[in-house]
Design a protein around this nucleic acid. Sequence first.
DNA 1: CCGGTGACGCGCG
DNA 2: GCGCGCGCCACCG
Length: 105
Amino acid sequence: MAKNFFEKVYEFVKKIPYGYVTSYGHVATSLGSPRAARQVGWALGAMPASLSDVPWWRVINSRGYLSIRKDDPNAKNIQRSFLENEGIIVDENFVVDLKKYGWVH
DNA sequence: CCGGTGACGCGCG
DNA sequence: GCGCGCGCCACCG
């Protein structure tokens, strides 16, 4: 268990309950580095496709916006599909209401 | 060891 | 409330 930042991120994301979402900043804070929110996103970006056990789509930015890398509209659409599949209401602008679906550890 | 990178966050106008 | 700009921390070459 090297417990690198990446692995920590993966484990934390796995702990996100079904039907809820959290922000990168919250994950980073839980990992012990409140300013490392960017690394959280980077860790998810470096995730191998085989590692589908990590619900990366439940991780969004603090504003509830689906911050997919490079603003890939296709990726946003995919993430929105996953969230809606869990009963989460996603705005047409790819925005989720953290007040309602935000998960607090 | 150093520089560049990046799915972000916060402060300011 | 919205848009712009700077800063932070960890991984890779």
